[in-house]
């Protein structure tokens, strides 16, 4: 790791000011991704601003739902009774990611901020527009088995690696951020962005903005949920494809549906058209297959990830089967 300075922050405003002061200052939360990136030379900070002492760990009921403090750890969220009860999909998704130890360190905000696992991004000896804008995309003509099938650009075909994000986007979470210009809310679906010409930007945060909390709306999908993650080993691996599925049922009719995918795009990939299609339908393989087909519209694969065009719709079908069972 390059040498850097360290500031322990006790208040959000101070932390934000500390980061704004220096071009290469970063917030440090759980560190599970940032410290790794510094070790690999992908990030070379001059200062880390430790926000762990900030009072942002709470998980609290609000008038409209549940507020997750940005510093609540992944484990605290996944195991929280209110989450298990009202948002089991979130719990399932979080527990499908990383390992127990990492989930004990990683935070809600940090998980949202984690960078792609694309190996061209992590290896400073290879080109990557995300790490080093203008250097090219090594994955485009390289080993792109893990890469995007939706929303990619010629500049970047990396995917967002988070499982938590997939559930969050499906559940219509809202992100609260605080920055030099004050506070604002960002719908979760708008928090992460597609690479376009600026893959170096993972999200829509502005410099110095700090995630304070994530709000979940009132529980609406607490029963018929599934999180399916297909990966190269049974646990502790990133997704080839993952699917978050949540259904609201009235007898044998789907009255509302939420579907999102991980491992397929630069952001957690919400499947609105498939959701709309499912509303008013009776659960069944044919219905689910059609939904999956709708969800796959616009998918584009590269040399080594052609399989995702088969795996993704299969995973949607399987997740819907499990959720409706």
């Amino acid at each position: 790791m390059n040498p850097f300075q360290y500031t322990r922050s006790l208040a959000a405003a101070g932390a934000i000011q500390s980061v704004l002061k220096e071009p290469h200052a970063h917030f440090l939360a759980g560190g599970t991704n940032l410290i790794d990136l510094i070790k690999m030379g992908v990030v070379t900070p001059e200062r880390l601003v430790d926000i762990n002492p900030l009072p942002l760990k709470g998980i609290e009921k609000t008038a409209t739902g549940l507020r997750l403090g940005a510093l609540a750890t992944n484990s605290e969220v996944a195991d929280h009774p209110l989450v298990l009860q009202g948002y089991p999909l979130l719990s399932l998704a979080i527990n499908a990611g990383a390992s127990p130890q990492l989930r004990n360190m990683a935070t809600v905000g940090g998980n949202m901020m984690q960078r792609t696992r694309c190996n061209y991004f992590f290896d400073t000896a290879m080109p990557c527009n995300k790490r080093s804008p203008g250097s090219g995309c090594g994955a485009l003509e390289g080993i792109n088995r893990m890469h995007a099938i939706f929303g990619a650009s010629p500049a970047c075909i990396a995917v967002n690696p988070s499982d938590m994000n997939v559930a969050m986007v499906a559940l219509d979470a809202v992100v609260h951020v605080k920055g030099p210009k004050g506070e604002r809310k960002i719908p979760f679906a708008d928090f992460h962005r597609l690479p376009g010409d600026h893959p170096e930007k993972d999200n829509t945060l502005e410099r110095g903005e700090l995630i304070m909390a994530v709000d979940l709306p009132a529980p609406a999908f607490s029963q018929h949920v599934a999180y399916l993650k297909i990966r190269d080993r049974t646990s502790y691996a990133f997704a080839l494809v993952s699917v978050a599925a949540a259904l609201k049922m009235d007898g044998n009719m789907i009255t509302d549906a939420r579907l999102a995918m991980g491992g397929v795009a630069h952001k957690p990939w919400r499947l609105h058209a498939a959701e709309t299609f499912l509303k008013g339908k009776t659960p069944g393989d044919d219905t689910f297959k059609q939904a999956a087909q709708i969800a796959m519209q616009g998918a584009k694969a590269y040399r080594y990830n052609q399989f995702k065009l088969t795996m993704a719709p299969n995973a949607i079908l399987q997740a819907l089967k499990t959720a409706s069972a």
């Binding site: 190996n119 290896d123 000896a125 290879m126 090594g138 003509e141 390289g142 080993i143 088995r145």
Partner: peptide, 11 residues
């Protein structure tokens, strides 16, 4: 897994 463009392992 090897990338033969660069001659480096990618995993």
């Amino acid at each position: 897994v090897f990338d033969d463009h660069f001659g480096r392992y990618v995993n």
